[in-house]
């Protein structure tokens, strides 16, 4: 930590300022007090903005209920159909009753990712506290549901019946480990992607301060920004489709 601060201070002296991680600081919106549990912070603001954006797209956009849809309505229908079809394809018909939950996850992550790309925005999904909660929610729900739906049969997920008998205990251990690693990879994948992308953008933005390399830096920012748009969508998609896969495991534990 100390060395990082040194580097930052040193860079400040030479005109180049890198504070790539400062964008992730949680600040109270009003006043300078400490951040308590219920303090209204930039997290609150940007989560609120994503709720507003979701309402604008899915509620206001569809308010005319037109048979021939307007642009916003067809975008809302497209999103609906995208997630609906994903669940149907990955989880199967019986996964469709969990559609509102999965749609909630997808919409929140997609909008948090996308809104985070607005310059000056705070990316809520770049925080492990947020993605961790999302992943643990999925993990806990899926595990509890697996046991409720299948009873002890859910443990069949770890007992690979198609493998030779001698291998099955070893495979069971591997399956068990991979099962418990799920929430970790699930959350770090999203938060890591978001954080890395935004930090890189910030580093390039720091380089843009020097006239000599500014054109290169601005070009790089543009390219990275385009890539980050893609990543923002792909990560929301990946998180959702993995949720569907885990849900499928809970509903049909046999391999």
């Amino acid at each position: 930590m100390a060395t990082e601060t040194h580097a930052a201070e040193a860079a400040e002296g030479s005109g180049l300022v890198f504070h790539p991680m400062d964008q992730f600081i949680v600040k109270p919106l009003f006043g300078d007090g400490p951040v308590g549990m219920f303090t209204i912070t930039n997290v609150t603001l940007w989560m609120f903005i994503s709720v507003i954006a979701i309402v604008l797209l899915l509620v206001v956009g569809t308010s005319r209920r037109a048979i021939v849809p307007s642009r916003s309505q067809s975008l809302a229908e497209l999103t609906y159909g995208f997630v609906y079809k994903m669940i149907e394809d990955v989880t199967g018909k019986d996964g469709l009753k969990y559609f509102p939950y999965i749609m909630t996850l997808f919409m929140f992550i997609l909008f948090a990712n996308m809104l985070g790309l607005i310059p000056g925005a705070f990316t809520t999904t770049s925080h492990i506290a947020v993605t961790g909660v999302l992943a643990v929610l999925v993990f806990a729900t899926v595990t509890i549901m697996g046991f409720v739906k299948n009873g002890a049969g859910f443990l069949g997920l770890f007992w690979v019946a198609s493998a030779p008998l001698a291998l099955r205990p070893i495979l069971a251990i591997i399956e068990l480990i991979s099962y418990f690693v799920r929430p970790v990879s699930h959350s770090i994948r999203l938060a890591g992607n978001m954080m890395a992308g935004h930090a890189v953008l910030k580093v390039f933005a720091g380089f843009a301060g020097s006239a000599l390399i500014a054109p290169v830096a601005v070009g790089a920012i543009t390219a990275m920004y385009a890539l980050e748009m893609l990543v923002a969508f792909v990560q929301a998609y990946v998180f959702t489709i993995l949720t569907c896969v885990y849900l499928k495991d809970a509903l049909h534990p046999s391999h």
Binding site: G36, F38, T41
Partner: peptide
């Protein structure tokens, strides 16, 4: 320090 806040608002 900030995790509680984030989790609550999430």
């Amino acid at each position: 320090e900030w995790m509680g806040n984030q989790i609550f608002w999430l």
